[in-house]
Design a protein around this nucleic acid. Structure first.
Lengths: 223, 223
DNA sequence: ATTATTAATGAGTCAACCTCATTTTAGGAG
DNA sequence: CTCCTAAAATGAGGTTGACTCATTAATAAT
């Protein structure tokens, strides 16, 4: 067997371990997960696990890192930068909500423990949320988004709402709910987008009415 | 020793165990926490723990339940129902953010595991978020809040944003930040509160048309 | 004062993570 | 094809920590 195929084989085995670990951690949580189960599902001996990952926590970290890495790629593919930034944000919200509902357990395992490899995890997530930041920054450049927006505040609202909503939905045994996305996007639209953007796509009577109210307020304050 | 003082003594011991457990769980997380440490800090034998709580998870559940119970009482005391509902909401946001930053570890331990006593925990939290719901419902009654608000959506935004912001702040070793509260309240104000001059709601195209006519009239008269 | 019941103890059990001496596999040289 | 060496894999056993239970102590009742 050549060196390259050997490397492929090792990487395949590593991927196999990660997949097995992801399943077991998702089903049983960190505590409930048994290293013996993971080894059995990956069809290797228990001791072999420790050649690839130094302990259980390290294995979980790898699973979590892969999840957020894949999520970043998926998010970048889910948005179309040629469309209006509000449409991009809506697409990101939909993708994010769907993904964290699907892999709810992994998300829950992301923030665990106090002082372990928190730095690495923070970088991973910082990289992920950059997709959001880029949408807003492009929106500002294009003149669609208000330039006085405080991005970290908008980010907290965006991801905070989606994560909390996902938890609510999962705990109620409900699945994806588009209303969560719509509501959030409406909210951010109203607070962070420039009013001119309403000209393009009036979606509902409520949108039109809200805009009227804002116009009247402006008129009133101008006196 | 009379029966009542005996009961008091037992309750005091139980409170002592809960306090010790809360400290150890907060410092070390669920995994890192040692039952022996908790027993030592409560100044009892390790076996005695199991007379009060059937296992480690049960002990954590008790700590978490006490936390959310206390939080509910604190939140009810933090708001003044005689003030405008927006002020009440702001007070609740401030109290909540401060509290979950202070006891960040306990909050993180609340959502753990998959299928254990999730039902009980859900009730606990449902009871807590009722404080929020009551503020909004009173606001609707008083005519301050739009009556077409979808409360669960507003709730997800409120608690989701605060929880995510708390995590961000703690991970950055920052403390309480009033801007988080202000930003959130502004957002909810803009989306869910009625504007002073038009308390009616968009019911039909006629309403919208009538308002447009009024605006045109105002604009004409100004030239 | 004696007995009965309840509470507390901590040494021992068991399960699960992790180690390491041993075995197996793989690739290259003769 | 055979031998050799280094890397990879194995799983029995060590260690740690949650949990049990026979024993002891404390409290209440008669």
């Amino acid at each position: 067997m050549s060196r390259s195929t050997q490397r492929q084989k090792i990487e395949a085995r590593e991927a196999c371990i990660l997949a097995a670990a992801g399943q077991v951690f998702s089903e049983a949580g960190f505590e409930g997960a048994r290293m013996a189960d993971i080894a059995r599902r990956a069809e290797i001996a228990e001791g072999t696990l420790y050649l690839y990952y130094k302990n259980k926590q390290d294995l979980l970290d790898a699973v979590v890192a892969k999840f957020w890495g894949d999520l970043t790629v998926g998010a970048e593919n889910a948005i179309d930068v040629t469309r209006p930034s509000l449409v991009q944000l809506s697409a990101l919200a939909k993708y994010h909500l769907q993904a964290i509902i699907d892999d709810f357990a992994i998300v829950g395992l992301t923030y665990r423990g106090t002082n372990n490899e928190a730095g690495q995890r923070r970088d991973q997530i910082r990289h992920y949320v950059r997709v959001f930041d880029q949408i807003l920054l492009r929106g500002i450049d294009r003149g669609e988004v208000r330039s006085d927006i405080v991005i970290w505040q908008a980010r907290d609202i965006f991801y905070g709402t989606l994560e909390f909503s996902a938890r609510t939905l999962v705990l109620r045994d409900a699945g994806f709910d588009q209303r969560v996305v719509t509501n959030l996007i409406d909210l951010m639209h109203a607070s962070y987008w420039k009013l001119e953007q309403y000209n393009n796509e009036p979606t509902s009577l409520d949108d039109v009415f809200a805009r009227l109210t804002r116009i009247e307020t402006k008129l009133k304050s101008r006196r």
